[in-house]
Amino acid sequence: MTKREKAQIMDSDDIARAITRIAHQILERNRGASDLILVGIRTRGAPLAERIAKSMESIEGSEIPVGILDITLYRDDLQLVSKQPVVGKTDIPAGVDGKVVVLIDDVLFTGRTIRAAMDEIMDFGRPKGMQLAVLIDRGHREVPIRADYVGKNVPTSAKEIISVALKEHDGADKVSVEELVQ
């Protein structure tokens, strides 16, 4: 089985514009950047969080703390997979008590990753609030979770694959829809 690209849905300019808009929306909704922590979910949420923070910093002029979360140990399917997935490092700066944590991920799909991320953040303390920003919302939720900030809504069939490529990991910025072919 190989993957075949069906359509490109975002290029690097589209991604940059979505990030700028999300940065503005986060600041508008929270009336500034005080008490905010951005937490990127590994792997591709981490560079997105860095980019959104940078954009917010250029708007607001103050530094935004950024953390990285690896949710592997909180996954609900570890008893189902054959061998254990690779665990990356988690790094949450300072405490989350009394802060507003904005979780950031590339694609929102079943919502299970976000469920795991919320559980993990709760083990770091008691944030004042949690919000969710994603680059792509592709639907097909399996748990009651929705995003507060969305780069692009992409209706998909469950069989399609949304592939997000980011410069930091993949050399170029691009979002495309792929499908498996025999």
């Binding site: 690896d70 592997t72 140990l73 909180y74 570890l78 690779v86 665990v87 990356g88 490092k89 988690t90 790094d91 405490g95 559980d119 993990e120 083990d123 770091f124 303390g125």
Partner: peptide
């Protein structure tokens, strides 16, 4: 060793426990 490197931080959390 790579995997163990990711587990060091868990013992420094306020709640030193993960549900894995």
């Amino acid at each position: 060793l790579e995997t163990a490197g990711s587990f060091v931080e868990i013992s420094e959390r306020p709640i030193k426990k993960v549900p894995v």
